[in-house]
């Protein structure tokens, strides 16, 4: 398998193929994501409605997928904290009977695979999707899973990666695989 185009996002930096394409000094992930969105001129207003995990996965995917045709590119992602960042926020909205305000706009992001849905929508990728939860980044597992998708002929490429976020701790490592 060939690994082309690699994106890493951590410590307020976006690195593509060893080159820092964006960095800033903001305190929070939300601000960092907002600045990155502007700087990369993404022009996709839905971005602002996404939860932080989706924003992270979206940014990492965007710089790799660009405007190319991805109608045969599968998505295989994994992380450790699932959607717990949003789960925790959602739980706070239902913890007390006096302050009980569950919101459908938050609840929908209490699933880790929503970020894969967001990327699929942006690039119109009606392709194979999978989201795994692993206790740590396991590149071999993700590559094994991606390889069998490629070999089965169900996709020509796989956008593969680790998209981990909980509160202000985050890391994305996303890459494109072909046979």
């Amino acid at each position: 398998m060939k690994k082309t185009d690699i994106c890493t996002i951590e410590h307020s930096k976006i690195i593509v193929n060893n080159e820092v394409i964006f960095e800033n000094q903001t305190e929070t992930f939300s601000e960092f994501a907002k600045e990155a969105y502007k700087n990369l001129a993404l022009n996709y207003p839905k971005f602002h409605k996404m939860d932080n995990l989706s924003k992270l996965a979206f940014l990492a995917s965007e710089v790799i997928l660009k405007d190319e045709d991805h109608s045969r590119t599968a998505l295989v992602f994994a992380n450790k904290s699932s959607s717990l960042d949003t789960d925790f926020k959602y739980q706070e909205s239902i913890n007390s009977q006096e302050n009980y305000f569950p919101s459908p706009a938050v609840f929908v992001y209490t699933l880790p695979n929503i970020c894969v849905g967001e990327i699929s929508i942006k690039h119109q990728m009606q392709t194979e999707n999978a989201f795994f939860i692993l206790d740590e980044f396991d590149e071999k597992f993700l590559n094994d899973y991606s390889e069998q998708i490629l070999q089965s002929g169900k996709a020509d490429k796989v956008l593969c990666g680790w998209v981990e976020l909980y509160q202000e701790s985050y890391k994305a490592f996303v890459y494109l695989l072909t046979l």
Binding site: V108, I114, S120, I121, Q126, T127, E128, K154
Partner: peptide
Amino acid sequence: DSAINDANHIS
């Protein structure tokens, strides 16, 4: 087996 996304709407 197959698992394909609609690429249409998240909810």
